[in-house]
Design a protein around this nucleic acid. Sequence first.
DNA 1: CTGTTAGCGCGTTCAA
DNA 2: TTGAACGCGCTAACAG
Lengths: 336, 336
Amino acid sequence: MATMAEVAREAGVSVATVSRLLNNQETVSPETANRVFAAIEKLHYEPNLLARNLRKNESRVILIVSPNVTNPYYAHILSGIGDVATKLGYSALIYNTEDDKSREREALEMLRKHRADGAILMASNTNSGWLLEYSHEFPLVQCSEYDPQVDIPHVSIDNYQATKEAMEYLIELGHRQIAIISSENDYISTRLRLQAYRDTLTQHSIACSENYIINASRDYSFKSGKSKAKELLKVEPRPTAIFCISDTLALGAITAAKELGFSVPDDVTVVGFDDVEHTTMFHPYITTVAQPCYDLGKQSAYLLCSLMRQETQIPRQTILDHKLIVRESSASPKVG
Amino acid sequence: MATMAEVAREAGVSVATVSRLLNNQETVSPETANRVFAAIEKLHYEPNLLARNLRKNESRVILIVSPNVTNPYYAHILSGIGDVATKLGYSALIYNTEDDKSREREALEMLRKHRADGAILMASNTNSGWLLEYSHEFPLVQCSEYDPQVDIPHVSIDNYQATKEAMEYLIELGHRQIAIISSENDYISTRLRLQAYRDTLTQHSIACSENYIINASRDYSFKSGKSKAKELLKVEPRPTAIFCISDTLALGAITAAKELGFSVPDDVTVVGFDDVEHTTMFHPYITTVAQPCYDLGKQSAYLLCSLMRQETQIPRQTILDHKLIVRESSASPKVG
DNA sequence: CTGTTAGCGCGTTCAA
DNA sequence: TTGAACGCGCTAACAG
């Protein structure tokens, strides 16, 4: 808690010299430098960031706006952002919104208050026009979810292509009665996955039955996955495969199948999405589309830093690789 | 990004008046107040926290030191801290240490830099003497884990009593061959749970065999739970129950049992600890000791705020309630 | 009830 | 190579 003035006095120099030493290492003689370092050591001096940041008019803080850190998917992204932030000399401030738009706004006001220099938004839905006014004033990056209509840089995977690959895998296995558990939320990922589901079926001349399309809760809860799967498994003809837009939903579907006396994958194939820890620990190990959560966070942080450094040539869209991971919950349908 | 001076000019008053209105709402006439509010509105003014905080010599930031946000247990605590922080006008800064002591130190240096006003430490091990020097200078709270030797306020559950209850439940079910999967880490919770395991057996005149005690990895990984359980299930006489000090380990144990052809709970009972989401979604639903993670975080935050407000009479220890939750993974041992 | 003024601790001119 | 002095935007005396 010593101040720079105290260090200066202790070392017999002026504050300017101390400051120079700590910032632009230029032009300080070795001997004075040593005296100053000794003083710093002796007094346990650490620069007061409040003062430094005020002077420099920056906070060196990255704001992370997430609906809920408790969700492992977001937690992994958060982890990626945090690591990059630390590495680049920033701190990671987290703001939970519980999916509440007013809290999201509240979070962004932190930028105007100079509490943070830029923000990474997770889970913006596809109605984010209001974000534009902020993005004109402050560095903003959308991670994983984004609004295609809105011109804010974002990092994501190719949800359409990823879903297409999963669907083609199912079709190749021989499935024709493929259902989907989507969600009633308004994320771009949801929309694209559903679209790819429909398109892929059509492209393979498979009729796309509305009975096979069902929406789970906004937050992909296990519970709703389970109850929606039960509905699907009662549809005639019974689907031989269920594509779920999240692993939690897929686990719900597997549980539902078991409770109804069906075996996975013998009676019904279940495929998930995300591949986050803790959801892939159980038999049958789940076939899923893996997202690089940690890297999504990392790239978002790098992108934001570019933005904050006012670099030109910022890509509007960064797409990371997904990967279909085949495990135990999928198989060819039984004949007959 | 307007400044207070601009607001003052716009409203035709001095900065002092604006400041007064924003802080101590005392003594400003309604009409001037209105003019000022109008100016604030018009200019989209938000106070510059960098300046305010420098002036007041506080950051209004709570530092959260956690080994890994990705762990749902910590994520829930984090969530509790975050909510209280927001409510009390603080921001939550998160610092991931990956269980690295030097990074932990690095995190605490944030306090000296005035980046945060106080810190909540998760997962300090029982060798935390070095924390004392910080706790004398800064408000510090330990959450969930702590060093009993070190005089820093902490929030936790009664690990000893909780384990005792779980053990007595198993004994009451009729189990006599009870094994434990502990961990090689050095947390107080681990130590207390192991001690309670031994003591409870002794108190019920059950011999405590060292063959039944095994340590999983530091981080309670599913994998190590699985492999350690396999070892245990080969011990003769085979344990009829396995008490695991975390749910992840318990899930590993259940998987191990299945793979060895044992049924849970018919052939072997498995009990976990924590009751965090995502680990209790699978059959057999796991019998476990629930910890109030969210509340642990909440209480830690409140405690830290008391500390920061320099309140006297700060309790050194806050114990929250645990709860044994009996589900499907436990049953009486088969006779013979 | 309101304005003037002096710092908070630092970085950054400008002179020496 | 170094020091003196100013000001970042705000709060809190103190005066009026």
